[in-house]
Computed example of a mutant assay.
Amino acid sequence: MRTLEEVQATLQIAKLKEEDLHTTIHCLTFGENVSSADYCLMELDDTLCKHIEAGQSLIIRGDKDEHAVLCSEDKTYDLKIADTSNLLLFLPECRTPDQLSNSQDSSHVVHAQIWGFCNSYWELRRQRPKLKKLKKLLMENPYEGPALAGQEENTENRYTLQDLLERIQASEEEIKSHLETIHACQIDGYWRVLDFDYEMKLLGHVTQLVDSESWSLNKVPLQTSLEELAPLEPREMIEHCLNCYGKRYSENDEVYYALYEDRVCRGTALMLLHNAVKFNLREFQEVWQQSVPEGMSTSLEQLKGVALVDRTSRPQTISLLQVEDLPEDTAARFNHLFTLREKWTEEDITPYIHDLCGEKQTTGALLTKYARSSTQNGYKVFNSRRPVAT
């Protein structure tokens, strides 16, 4: 253990003036069996520091073949190792200058023991949650409706929320939000996504009932709907369908739903396009408008991110292209899009890259990085900046 005299002698050799330094002098020593593998350091921003100080948890998620991410309750962060040229020491008993008392008149020595050291740390960067795997897991066993008499329902590949939290690289809030987006529901404690045909069947029952009863699209009574459709489908499925395609509200102690025009029209369009490779655009628009409930108006704006119009073909066509089916990686997404179409207008490509934008990032910035622009027939178009891999 160094004495004050030894420290003062070292200062003289180093040609440092004792009066220029703090009166408290730390002498550092290594503890027994200290190694760089004992501790990992992580750099946190103010938000995450307050999160930890409030007693909340941070969780590292990822399967063995995935790059690990760190999740708070509602955000996802990429974990990357950052190297530093300075050796970082872990000193639990060391005090920083702002923690020291300046009331000491003379210098004194404080001994602090090093518990660990390293020359790298974990650096966190906010990133988009990786949610594509969520629907993929749930699609292993989609819910096709109640089992028919004499048939047993498939109980394999079913997932609770805890199962999903262990498998999906996203925070709990992000996972719950995406479950709502993909119209998943909880059945017998397991999260299930509805089979597409079954979901469209439910929507058809609801819209047909609205038409037959001449109800206002903004005032669909829940209780009457359940009673009328109970012989056809389970009550909880009818209510789930109304939650997916309408907004719930109460009036005079009665529960009603205001149907979302865009969601109902989009669902109907998906049903029409589901089994067609390409559809004549003009014919599609006519059939589509005839298929939605009376009082609703269809518009191609409702199909952004789920269907693509080819205006260069004669006649013009429309085909199914859902953003949720595209690669999650940004470079792979652009490569896939440019294999489908060599040149894109900004209006056409934006719905298919908007979800790739990080915090404070725009689709324009993504296009600048991954595409180059040119003018074709008076319109600005984008093609791949790199050779397209097929």
Score class of each variant (00 low, 15 high):
150 G>V: 06
128 R>F: 08
321 L>C: 13
18 E>K: 13
198 Y>K: 09
169 Q>H: 06
387 P>T: 10
234 P>Q: 02
192 R>S: 11
175 I>K: 01
389 A>Q: 14
334 F>R: 13
299 S>P: 08
330 T>S: 11
202 L>V: 00
41 L>V: 12
274 H>K: 14
153 E>Q: 14
70 L>E: 03
91 L>F: 06
95 R>C: 02
286 E>K: 15
34 V>S: 07
218 N>W: 06
76 T>N: 05
311 R>I: 05
257 Y>K: 06
288 W>I: 12
285 Q>A: 12
76 T>F: 03
149 A>Y: 14
116 G>T: 05
245 Y>C: 07
52 I>P: 00
144 E>V: 12
283 E>P: 06
74 D>I: 01
66 E>L: 09
49 C>K: 12
16 L>W: 04
168 I>T: 04
205 H>M: 15
246 G>E: 01
103 S>I: 04
327 P>M: 04
70 L>D: 03
139 M>P: 07
107 S>G: 05
261 E>M: 02
298 T>K: 14
60 I>A: 13
149 A>D: 10
168 I>H: 06
210 V>M: 08
259 L>K: 10
289 Q>G: 10
204 G>W: 11
142 P>L: 05
219 K>W: 07
240 H>L: 00
205 H>L: 15
354 H>N: 05
301 E>F: 12
374 S>W: 08
195 D>Y: 08
214 S>Q: 09
102 N>L: 07
226 L>H: 00
257 Y>P: 03
187 I>D: 10
181 T>C: 07
359 E>C: 09
295 G>K: 09
166 E>K: 14
215 W>C: 12
218 N>S: 15
357 C>Y: 08
125 R>N: 13
59 I>G: 05
16 L>G: 02
104 Q>V: 04
388 V>L: 05
172 E>D: 07
244 C>T: 13
10 T>Q: 10
234 P>F: 01
271 M>Q: 08
131 L>N: 07
265 C>P: 12
45 D>L: 02
269 A>F: 01
69 V>F: 05
117 F>E: 10
91 L>N: 04
242 L>H: 13
328 E>H: 10
261 E>N: 04
68 A>C: 07
20 D>Y: 02
310 D>I: 05
370 Y>R: 02
10 T>A: 13
46 D>F: 08
149 A>K: 10
146 P>D: 15
319 S>E: 11
55 G>C: 12
205 H>W: 15
1 M>C: 04
381 V>L: 03
1 M>I: 03
336 H>P: 04
350 T>K: 10
207 T>R: 09
72 S>D: 00
310 D>P: 05
77 Y>C: 09
82 A>V: 09
382 F>K: 14
282 R>S: 15
17 K>N: 14
172 E>T: 06
121 Y>T: 01
54 A>G: 14
47 T>L: 12
72 S>G: 00
281 L>K: 07
204 G>C: 11
11 L>E: 06
